[in-house]
Write a protein that binds this DNA or RNA. Structure first.
Lengths: 360, 360
DNA sequence: TCCGATTTGTTCGTATGTATG
DNA sequence: GCATACATACGAACAAATCGG
C-alpha cells in the first residue's frame, strides 16, 4: 500500500501521504483519521514521528486533533486564503474606480477580501507592493502591469508567485514572457476601428499620439498604422507622437501645438485615450480652431471625460465595471482550481459621437 | 531568574517566557537565542520539551531556526498584522476614489495592505463585510458607517472588534453609543456657513434638502436651521426636504419641482451635497428658470461635480485625499499603539463660486 | 455512575545525522 | 577534523479527555 523510502524525512513522507489523501477526497471533511498508535504500527514508525507529521498537518489547517477523541479531517480549508490583491497603475482616476468597483462587487459577494494598491505607474512602487503581498498571505493577485512595454524588471516576483502556487491574472496588458492568465482589450483593433472610421469619412491626413511605455499604447499605434496601410497611406513620422508617463503633462499639448503650426496640418487626430483627447481638444481650442469643423479627434476607453465637455468624443467602448466583475469571477475560478489560465480579449466597439466630421 | 510551575505545560511556560523577552525587546531581531541544549540545562527540561516550545515560536513567526547555526529572533514581526480594512458606503463615485487614494498612499508607503470593500449603503452588506473581516486576520479597520442616523444594528461587530483588540476609526460620521476614534467634517458648521452666506446676500426664502438616514444629513440640516434661526426666520416645513438613500433617484428632483410650482417659491436652495445640487440644477433648468439669476443653489463637499457643469457651485470644501492620508496615518498610529483614540473634526470652509447672487 | 479501553497531550531519555564555523 | 547546534528518529511513561458498556 505505501512504503517509506529514504529520499526525505519519514515524518515528511507520512505528512504528504495523508495530505494527498485529504486533497484527493479519500479522507472526507469531518472523517476520523487512523489513530497515532495505529499509524505508528502500520508504517513501523515511532509514535513521536507520527505526531510530528500530524502536528504539521494541524498547523497547516488540514486536520484537527481532539484530546481523547481522535484526529479529524478539517472542514474549514484554512489553506485557501480569502485575500485577493489588486494592483493597478491608478485607482482614483479615469476608468479605474469603475473597474475596481466591479472587482470588489464580485469578490465581496463571494466572501473574499480585496487588497488594493496602486503603483502610480512606478516600477519601483510595483516591486514594493509585490514584496508586501508576498510577505502577507494573499490567495491570488490581479495585476495591471506598470509600464508593460518596458523590460519586466519585476519578473522575479511573478516567478515567486508561481513557485508559491499563487494564481495571478493580468489586466489590460500582459508580459509576453510570462504566458499568464489575462483579461485585456483588443487595443490594436480599437484604434484600427477609430482610424478606419476617420478614413471612411474621407480623412487622409491623420496624426496619432500614443503612450510608448505600456503595451496598450504600442498596440493602439499598431492598429492605427495598419488601418492607414490598408488605405495605402505611408506613415509620416512627424505625425506620430510618442510620450512616456513622465511626459504626460507637457508632451501631448506641445506635440499638437507644433503640428498645428506647420504648413500642412492633419485633418484628424487619433489619441491614445480620452484623457489625451481632452488635452488635444484644449490645444486645438487655444489655437483658435474648432472640433470637429477644422479637425476631427477620436479618443479611447469611453471614460466619463468623453462626454464631460461640449464636444462629445467618438471613442472605443471599455467594459469598466463589467470587466471588473469578469476579472473577479475569473480570479475566483483560478483560486478554487476550476480554471487554470483563463484568457479573455474583449473585442473593441466603436462609439460614434460628435468629434469627427465628413470631409470631401 | 525564572521558575517553572505546575499551572500549565512546561513547554508552554518556556514559550511564553521567550515570547515576552522578544516583545519586551530583551531579545532583539537577529540576535541569537540560547541553544536548545543550554536552555534544557538551564530550565532542567529535556531537549525535546525545549524543541516543542521553540517549534511553536517558529510557527508563529517569532524565531527562525537554522541548522548548524542556531536559533535567531525574527526580524519580520509576523504577529503585527499588516492588513488594514477600509469599509465605505461607496468606492467608485463622488469624492470616494480620492479619499481611498489618500488612505492607500499612506498605508502602502508604510508597508500595510489596504483591504477594500463597500456597503452600497446597505446595512446587511455592512454586516456581511464586517463578518468577513472578523474571520480573516485584519489589524485595524477604517469604517464609514452606513446609514449612521438609523439604529446601529451592527453594534455587536464593533464590540467584537474591541474584544479582539482590533482598533477601528470612523469616517464622516460616528455612532454616539460607541465613543470611537473618528475623522469627520464639521457638517453642522458647513451648512451653517452656506446658509449664512445666502442670508448675507439678502436671501430670506431659503429651502433645504437633506439626507435623513445618515448623521451627516442630520447635522447639515441642524446647521441650516441654526443659521436661519439667527436671522429670526422660522422654518417652513414645506421648504425642507428629507430623503433616504432609496429615494435618491426620484425624490430631490420631485421635491424641487413641487417647490417651484407653488405660489411663493424660495430664492435659494441649500443642498445636502453637490450630487443633490446637480439634481436640483437639472430640475430648475427644466422648469425654465436660471441659476443664479432666478434661484441660488449651494452644494457641499466640493466634488468634481461642483465645477463640471456651466454653473460652478458655491460649496463647502472637503479635504478628500488629504483626509484619506490623515485617516491612514491615524489608523497606523492606533495600530502601533502610539495613539489610543485620535479624534479629528475638520472645520468647514466656504468656497464661493457662481451659483448664488445678491438680492436686494 | 463508574470502569476500563482508547486516544491525544506532555515529558522524559537516548542515539544518530548533518550543517556551520 | 572537531565542537557546536539543529534535525530526525526511536522508546517509554504518565496525564487527561472521551466513549462504550
Amino acid at each position: 500500500m505505501f512504503e517509506l523510502n529514504d529520499s526525505s524525512p519519514k515524518y515528511h513522507q507520512l505528512k504528504e501521504f495523508i495530505k494527498t489523501q485529504i486533497l484527493d477526497g479519500e479522507i472526507l471533511p469531518g472523517e476520523k483519521l487512523t489513530s497515532e498508535n495505529a499509524l505508528a504500527r502500520q508504517f513501523k514508525l515511532s509514535r513521536h514521528t507520527v505526531r510530528q507529521a500530524l502536528g504539521e498537518l494541524e498547523n497547516e489547517g488540514f486536520i484537527c486533533r481532539e484530546k481523547g477523541r481522535g484526529t479529524f479531517c478539517s472542514f474549514s480549508e484554512k489553506n485557501t486564503i480569502k485575500n485577493i490583491a489588486v494592483l493597478t497603475t491608478y485607482i482614483s482616476d479615469y476608468i479605474f474606480p469603475a473597474i475596481i468597483r466591479g472587482i470588489e462587487e464580485v469578490l465581496s459577494n463571494n466572501g473574499y477580501n480585496l487588497i488594493l494598491a496602486n503603483t502610480n505607474n512606478d516600477k519601483l512602487k510595483e516591486a514594493q507592493c509585490l514584496e508586501n503581498f508576498l510577505n502577507q498571505e494573499i490567495g491570488a493577485l490581479i495585476i495591471e502591469p506598470t509600464k508593460s512595454a518596458l523590460e519586466n524588471i519585476n519578473i522575479d516576483y511573478f516567478r515567486k508567485l508561481e513557485a508559491k502556487g499563487i494564481p495571478y491574472l493580468m489586466l489590460h496588458a500582459c508580459y509576453p514572457d510570462l504566458d499568464p492568465a489575462y483579461v485585456i482589450m483588443d487595443d490594436a483593433q480599437g484604434s484600427y476601428l477609430t482610424t478606419n472610421h476617420l478614413l471612411q469619412m474621407g480623412h487622409r491626413r491623420i496624426a496619432g499620439i500614443f503612450k510608448s511605455d505600456d503595451l496598450q499604447g504600442v498596440k493602439r499605434q499598431t492598429g492605427f498604422l495598419s488601418a492607414l496601410k490598408e488605405y495605402g497611406i505611408t506613415e509620416n513620422p512627424k505625425w506620430i507622437g510618442n510620450y512616456s508617463t513622465e511626459q504626460l503633462r507637457a508632451y501631448p499639448y506641445q506635440f499638437i501645438q507644433n503640428l498645428l503650426h506647420q504648413d500642412e496640418r492633419p485633418t484628424a487626430i487619433v489619441c491614445y485615450n480620452d484623457q489625451i483627447a481632452l488635452e488635444v481638444l484644449e490645444a486645438i481650442r487655444n489655437e483658435g480652431l474648432k472640433v470637429p469643423d477644422d479637425i476631427s479627434v477620436v479618443g479611447f476607453d469611453d471614460s466619463s471625460l468623453a462626454t464631460a465637455t461640449e464636444i462629445k468624443l467618438t471613442t472605443i467602448k471599455h467594459p469598466k465595471a463589467s470587466m471588473g466583475r469578469q476579472v473577479g469571477n475569473n480570479i475566483i475560478q483560478m483560486l478554487t482550481g476550476k480554471v487554470k489560465k483563463p484568457r479573455l480579449t474583449y473585442p473593441s466597439e466603436l462609439i460614434i459621437r460628435s468629434s469627427c466630421r465628413n470631409i470631401k
